[in-house]
Design a protein around this nucleic acid. Structure first.
Lengths: 343, 343
DNA sequence: TGATGCATCCAAAGCGCTTTGAAAAAGAGT
DNA sequence: ACTCTTTTTCAAAGCGCTTTGGATGCATCA
């Protein structure tokens, strides 16, 4: 069923039917109702490609799957962020498109999506400290939003981010206040912008307290469970092991917990752990009582907001750049406690 | 840059340019090279909407985000399955589209995607035991593939699935052979087809061994970490607690492990655990030595295969239905051991 | 009564591509 | 030199929609 057929059935022109369905005022209320009824009855759905061709808009937003090349890993927060965004898109009648790209051609992927007219805008996930994609997209004139920020990016751009620096500074200070001096940071990949900011929050808190930074207590890699486990195991073998560990994701924190248990240590008593909790739906940090003391910020909610900001941008390409800085909450669970007295 | 502009630059007709770029034989090798060079130089990308309109194909495949309504949970395997599929799509020049739908209108979402001409085919994830979407899609004539199967579905359809029944039967038998008699199954949601099959494999193995089924040792819910933890805790409080636990996902298995530790029990010695391992990229089951004894089958690989099968179906709508049954591997880790002697 | 405005509706152009049917150009054969 | 193929190129139609720039009818006003 297409417009032509529908208009023939109704004995109206395509123009009128199209206008009736799209809510233009030039059509009488009577015919509008008649048209709408017929459309519903026959299950008419305007062909979105044709519509897009005519309007110049595709009502589609593009994401490029951030599959870190090295280990072909899917970012665990990907699913929840996307679910949040999708929810907003559905509300505004946008569809959502994905492209997989090897890390090398990720830029091309964005370019291709936009130049082929597939999407009206794109979401940039997982920005690095130095993120070339941002300037590329700016130059191309693609409406886009960044989930996170990029320290090295020059111009202004739309972004939404968690205050990583502040939340990790706070978490670190919390541990220091509990008497900890040997505090480790098991961080995300070093070239990721968020990791850099978390690190600087951590460093700032240590400095403030006059604690020297020990490189042995600082690691970065992709935030898997295995990585958390292995790193924690190694650190526990140090002559002067950490009494507290900050983990950049709840997933690696799970690995840390496993490491503690493997070593016969009790989390919260022997070693304190604070995790960053993105509130992943399948990896909730406990029910009423949090398992981990955590800096908490819903990545799903961020997805919803990001989508909204992007849609705004698409509708008003010339508005000044918008940004949104979310504050993470510090929730106290049972994984932290006072620093144990040295033997 | 569009076709018209490019053809004017070249002094050729749109027809010739189009043919040259699409590899039709009616154009001389000389001009083909010339055209290709110009296209590259100017970064010409055919508008995919226009192309779709003209060809009647969109080169897009649709997925509907399986967000279980109740807890708005994103299926944890979603990301990896999709990453696999995306890889194949990229190879065949397909794009990938997502729609979020509340559980109630999930059927409409598929209908809308297809009727609006947005997609050439769809992937159906997370089929239930009784899955109405299958017959809907069949009737609509949408090319589709099911990741999993639906026991109640009538006609034939394309699917790819893991042999859940067999793998859980094998895992259960493995535990029985180790001397376990109190074996629990912490399963996925009961109305999901895969959960049903795993359960029947479990039941079959118990029956074979003449062990009576104890309803107290059987649970189903969404496979979160919390669920695994809570369920295991409850079961351990029974008068006659399980000595072995089968977990339907590695994520709930993590919860089970936490429960054991909370209760001062050692996994593999006091209580054996077998998990189903989808090889999620951020939740690997150990490095060289598996953490959990597990039934293993890569969901990412399934995604790749599913995409391939769907593309085949799109290209040959009238071929007889194709199916693919993957066998899960049983990998033995340190989470299982002989049943402890009763006190 | 004719001019004016307003509410409805429509024919046709155009979005950027593919593809049909035909024409022009180039070789081949005699 | 002329016809007959074969190769190469093209103009134009069509995909399904929106939108421009009229038409048409009808009530209103002088």
């Amino acid at each position: 069923m297409n417009l032509k057929q529908l208009s023939e059935i109704l004995g109206l022109s395509q123009t009128t039917v199209s206008r009736a369905l799209n809510g233009y005022p030039e059509v009488s209320e009577g015919t509008r109702i008649r048209v709408q009824a017929a459309a519903d009855k026959h299950g008419y759905r305007p062909n979105s490609r044709a519509k897009g061709l005519a309007t110049g808009r595709s009502m589609v937003i593009g994401h490029v799957i951030p599959s870190s090349s090295q280990h072909e890993m899917v970012n665990p927060i990907f699913g929840d962020f996307v679910a949040g965004a999708a929810r907003t898109y559905a509300e505004y009648n946008y569809d959502m498109m994905f492209t997989h790209a090897p890390d090398t051609s990720i830029e091309d992927s964005y370019r291709s999506l936009f130049n082929r007219g597939v999407v009206d805008g794109v979401v940039l996930q997982g920005p690095k400290v130095d993120e070339p994609r941002i300037s590329v997209l700016s130059r191309m004139g693609v409406p886009f939003i960044v989930h996170g920020r990029s320290t090295c990016a020059k111009g202004a751009y739309d972004w939404i981010d968690v205050n990583n620096q502040r939340s990790f500074e706070r978490a670190t200070r919390f541990l220091i206040d509990l008497g900890h001096r040997r505090i480790a940071l098991i961080n995300g990949l070093e070239d990721m912008d968020f990791a850099q900011r978390r690190r600087s929050g951590y460093v700032a808190a240590l400095e403030e307290a006059g604690i020297a930074l020990d490189p042995c207590l600082l690691r970065s890699a992709e935030m898997t469970e295995i990585y958390g486990h292995q790193t924690a195991c190694e650190m526990l073998k140090l002559d002067d092991p950490p009494t507290a560990i900050l983990a950049s994701s709840i997933i690696s924190a799970v690995g840390v917990r496993r490491a503690l248990e493997d070593n016969g240590l009790k989390m919260g008593r022997d070693v304190s752990v604070i995790a960053h909790d993105d509130e992943l739906s399948y990896m909730r940090n406990g029910m009423d009582v949090p398992i981990f003391t955590a800096t908490r910020s819903s990545v799903r909610h961020a997805g919803e907001l990001a989508a909204e900001m992007l849609i705004e941008r698409i509708n008003a390409p010339n508005d000044p750049p918008k940004t949104c800085l979310l504050e993470a909450e510090l929730v106290v669970g049972s994984s932290t406690g006072p620093a144990p007295q040295r033997a």
